[in-house]
Design a protein around this nucleic acid. Structure first.
Lengths: 158, 158
DNA sequence: TATTGTTATACTCTATAACTATA
DNA sequence: TATAGTTATAGAGTATAACAATA
């Protein structure tokens, strides 16, 4: 891989993310879910049951994308759709018992993956790293003073 | 966005990367290239001219993907293909004068984007962050000691 | 009329397979 | 036979548009 590129921040972020998501996928493999699906389970395991649209908004995906995500989880017996009695347009999506068990075990493995991923760092370094990362992930706009850079106002809503 | 998810490392890496690449795209917009294309220019601006396959290997993409990348840059007049005299199967890809200018200005803006992105950090923090990121990006294998104690029984592959 | 879930469709990104021209 | 570039194609992943049911 290009030595030249290894000092570029974008490259580093991309590949750190890639490595991490691959580790996560391996750890979850025998559970029969992937990281994406675990994230959906996390969101759906809310205090109050969520509609598909609620969950989609939480996850930052389109509602049409949510249909497929729920389809997958339902096919695995991890969640169930039911019509909301309050508003019959809405599908309330709830975890089954199997879904809750899978979520718990998935979360355990996820913690372990994070721990392994940061294992080479001292606790102080790991803390700092995560703190910085939170800031960079939150930063919706990182303005670069660029004269004619078109003042792009594209809004990334998550 | 889901508060629950903001503490997940994968989420943070993904969105930090997303924010950064969007900043980069904005900064490069008026130059008529995107971050991807700048990275290709960086690779192609090597000491010795590269073939498409060389460049593809440097970038970590397939040679079929490289065709399209070179097509784009050539359409913009930033690079030129020429048949290698040594091995006529190979396309040597070289930057045009316009390509070199664009690369220089793109690099300048890229530096500025990185600087802006890390602006909130002290130099020490920024250094540490990049150092950690390099380690995590390099980590090809992040072994997770697999517990094997799965709650869910089925092994479902879609 | 507006909203939720759904389907069909399209678009992006990338890889695999097959073809060509070279070696 | 093998390799470099190319094309066609397919597979994720996700978005837009249109439609049915419901509000």
């Amino acid at each position: 891989m290009a030595e030249l590129l290894t000092s570029r921040l974008g490259y580093l972020l991309k590949h750190a993310q890639l490595n991490f998501s691959q580790s996560g996928a391996r750890a979850l493999e025998s559970l029969g879910i992937n990281g994406r699906q675990l994230a959906v389970l996390v969101v759906l395991d809310a205090a109050e049951p969520l509609s598909q649209l609620d969950a989609a908004n939480e996850l930052g995906v389109d509602r049409t994308t949510m249909v497929a995500l729920v389809d997958e989880l339902e096919a695995k017996g991890l969640v169930e759709r039911r019509r909301s009695p309050d508003d019959r347009r809405k599908n309330i999506v709830e975890l089954t018992a199997h879904g809750k068990n899978t979520l718990a075990e998935g979360e355990r493995r996820h913690q372990q993956t994070e721990k392994a991923f940061l294992a080479d760092l001292t606790p102080i370094e790991a803390d700092l790293f995560v703190r910085i990362l939170k800031k960079l992930a939150a930063d919706a706009e990182a303005p670069v003073d660029q004269p004619e850079a078109a003042t792009g106002k594209e809004k990334k809503e998550d």
